[in-house]
Design a protein around this nucleic acid. Sequence first.
DNA 1: CCTGAACCGGTAGCGTTCCTACATGGACGT
DNA 2: ACGTCCATGTAGGAACGCTACCGGTTCAGG
Lengths: 313, 313
Amino acid sequence: MDVRRLELLRELAERGSITEVARATHRTPSAVSQQLRVLEREAGLPLTEKAGRGIVLTDAGRALARSATDVAIALERADALWDEFRHDPTGEVSLATFPTGGQMLLPGVLHRLAGQSGLTLHASDRDPVSEGFPDLTNDFDIVVAHAPSRPPSLWYGRGLSIVHLITEPLDVALPPGHPLADQASVSPSDLIGEQWIGVPWGYPFERTLYDISAAAGAPVNIVQRFADTRVTEALVSSGLGVAILPRYTAGGAYLTSDSLPRVALKPLSGMRAERHIYALMRPDRAERLAVRTIADLLRAEADAIREANPTRS
Amino acid sequence: MDVRRLELLRELAERGSITEVARATHRTPSAVSQQLRVLEREAGLPLTEKAGRGIVLTDAGRALARSATDVAIALERADALWDEFRHDPTGEVSLATFPTGGQMLLPGVLHRLAGQSGLTLHASDRDPVSEGFPDLTNDFDIVVAHAPSRPPSLWYGRGLSIVHLITEPLDVALPPGHPLADQASVSPSDLIGEQWIGVPWGYPFERTLYDISAAAGAPVNIVQRFADTRVTEALVSSGLGVAILPRYTAGGAYLTSDSLPRVALKPLSGMRAERHIYALMRPDRAERLAVRTIADLLRAEADAIREANPTRS
DNA sequence: CCTGAACCGGTAGCGTTCCTACATGGACGT
DNA sequence: ACGTCCATGTAGGAACGCTACCGGTTCAGG
């Protein structure tokens, strides 16, 4: 039983097709197929079965793939151990984040990282359009994701390592001269009749809009829908409506001219409106010293942001 | 970082010399040396250093070897998992035991095993002369050992898997017509003045003789010393002295003629006299389904023996 | 119904890897 | 000083895993 073969089985379990595994591991599909065939012969029972054009794992195959994860974890832990012996968290770490998460965390992380030479972070942003955001952990060491509720139950089933980074309040963004802008906080009933700048269907903050609607007992009137909070913020700033925006990322430095007015962020009273930001990692990758270092930096930066913003719920 | 190389490092940590590792893994010393050299180059720091004719591991080498154990455990667990999927605890298990341990447990275990075909047990006995009994775990899947005290602290340091099988009382063996043979139990002071059949220096029960001597406040008079309990028992049976014998193994069926009288076993009162019997396994080997099956049989047989002998402490 | 796309699997051949056989060199004991 | 033991180099051979290429199957669309 070879570890490399087990690793292939594991990739197959996570990616679902031999071609995808081949692409991810820089091999030919034929090579992958051959190795899996050898593994199956060693196992003595079928690990895959045909399903249409592709194949699916049998129960035995899935179980074996799970144990392959434990092997990978032990291996990466050994790797990390001797990295520690060299005091050398060197290497490359890839990171994917949703846009506002990167905006909030990456500047600080990269500044902290400037001290640590030899450790390079390749970050890129992805739109959290699809529900398959956790799938990115197959291709990135760290995936910064967010969810409205505390434990994203869907993620646990995949055995992902989950690090909670920060809980970010979702505020109501108002134009500067808005009547409600003088209040310390606004309640859902205050907002009846407002025009809303929302997000596209299925996007993150939609749930909060529903909650407001339910709490106020009146529908929210969504006149525009944008995925990019910069657009939303520009519209709110121009007095075209109100919106839900995350507290630590809205009102930032991305307005082109300093003379332009910003938005007023007001906490929502009488209801819970927040999003939880997590770092997701495949458990084997989470063992790498370089990955753990970056994860620690992310958490440190998130803590700094939380402390710099006094709680005014 | 290859698993096979890590495994070699682990073997080196346990066996101490490249030649021994080569012999154990059916390779040439040169091959072992080459692979360790590659591993060292990958690690980027020295794993071994010369010591006289041989080599010793550096601290880093030992640490890496420890993590290699975790990898081996994960691998064996995967192996066992798919054995379970096939409902097939097949394979060969090697076992080493001290003589009376084998006498007590092996007949029952082998009978129980007769039902399970495809699983073969290769057992052999070793004299527990040396202190290096746990070293046998390198060459045997299961080592049945005994110790006078509860947790043999020396064994824990090696990270061995330890399964407690049974606590066997150590009784006083008396000739059938001996004056004390009518009592339910005998105390150390009862035994003052007796002639003892002991064990060679450093052998298991010697400590109990010391304890008796201390409790009685008088020295014990050891006139003969034998390692084999059959000899001891034959002498006691002939009225040539008394001895300490383990309750479940003494008085057995190994007297040649049925007409010969046996010995009377009397519990020692007023002091603790017992030995603890354990199954020792290297943790990776302990994961194998076949090994676990045999270990379970050992424990079942030990439980049966304990229940068949009512406690009359 | 036929065609094209997507995917899995088989075969031949090549490159890499890892082992053996043999030889070298240092450390220890007699 | 010599033999022994142990680790470690070098050359060659065998095995393994990959690529390139081809065939078979399934499914969607005209």
